[in-house]
Amino acid sequence: MKVGFIGYGSMADLLTRQFLAHTDLAPSEIIVYTRSENEKLKDIHEVFPDVTIAKTSQEVFEQAVHTFLCVLPLGVLPVLLENKQALSSNKHVISIAAGVSINDLKHVTTDAQYSKLIPSLTTSVGIGTSLVNHDASVSEANQTWLNDALGAFSSVIEVAEEDIDLASDLTSSSPGFIAAIFEQFVQAAVRKSDLTEAEVFQMISNSLAGTSKLLAEQDYTFHSLIKRVATKGGITAEGVALSEDKLPAFFDELLERTERKYDDHHKEIKDQIKTLF
């Protein structure tokens, strides 16, 4: 069995390295194609010289049982269309592109088996979530293979396609949101004190890491952790009260903005489908 990657950016590299580190997949069982050679591809081939570098995307589809499509959203359907003849009923195609639905993929052919995957950067440290949606045509064996392979280094959650955009905000995008929010916390503390930015960053990042550990290892929920830390009438309670007052509107708008952006992506794909088919 071979596992293929078409496109080799950050997420393809993350998945490849995690599969090699945490599953029984051998380097010789991986085949990769990308239009332009990049540093990530050179690095993985130097570390694992048995990884096959294909000359065409067709080679990947022909040789791999499971192929991860790791190209930009508007590149997904053209790649599938170019290789339509290779997309037989025993081929399992896994798309990681935001805004491209399984029904969009099926415009090319209904012969192949399609799954959708939303990976997250946090899975590189073995604690993130992989969102998965399988089309009804995907065999039980292929569903099990993908879920088990991802489950070796992440929590796998199967999500209905209509919920996958919002779920992506909570998994794939949330590290960026969290970093942006706490970057503002850092800057506020710097403005209010003589502490250096590096000192404040260390304090807050350690607090974030410790909070995550408490949630992961001691069965706290957000609510129970707030109760544990925020004494009634105390200093922490003041900050919690402010958060409860101001943050609902912020997060409502955040999800509205990302929803509009997903809608833009979906419209681009629909327009592309009109052009291609």
Rank of each mutant, 00 (worst) to 15 (best):
V3P: 06
G9D: 07
L14G: 03
L14D: 03
L15N: 06
T16M: 02
Q18D: 02
Q18M: 12
A21V: 06
T23M: 09
D24L: 10
S28Q: 13
I31R: 02
V32A: 05
N38G: 03
K40S: 10
K40W: 08
V47L: 13
I53C: 04
I53G: 03
I53P: 00
A54G: 05
S57W: 01
S57F: 02
V60P: 08
P73Y: 11
L81P: 03
N90Y: 12
K91C: 08
I94T: 03
S95Q: 01
A97E: 06
A97P: 01
A98C: 09
S101K: 13
D104V: 01
K106L: 11
V108D: 10
V108W: 13
D111M: 15
L117I: 04
I118N: 00
P119Y: 09
L121V: 15
T122I: 12
S124T: 15
T129R: 00
V132H: 08
A136M: 05
S137F: 09
A141L: 14
D148S: 14
A152Y: 00
F153L: 02
S154Y: 03
V156W: 01
V156I: 06
I157D: 07
E162H: 05
I164H: 01
D165V: 01
A167R: 02
S168V: 01
L170Q: 00
T171C: 05
T171Y: 00
S172C: 13
S173G: 10
P175Q: 11
A180H: 11
A188W: 08
V190R: 09
R191H: 03
T196Y: 04
A198C: 02
E199M: 09
E199I: 06
Q202C: 03
M203W: 06
N206D: 09
L208E: 05
T211W: 07
L215M: 14
A216I: 08
D219Y: 07
S224V: 10
I226R: 10
R228K: 15
V229W: 05
A230R: 10
T236A: 11
T236V: 07
T236N: 09
A237F: 02
V240R: 09
A241F: 11
E244F: 07
K246D: 07
A249N: 11
E256L: 10
R257H: 12
T258W: 02
E259D: 13
Y262W: 12
K267S: 13
E268T: 07
I269P: 14
Q272T: 09
Q272E: 08
T275A: 12
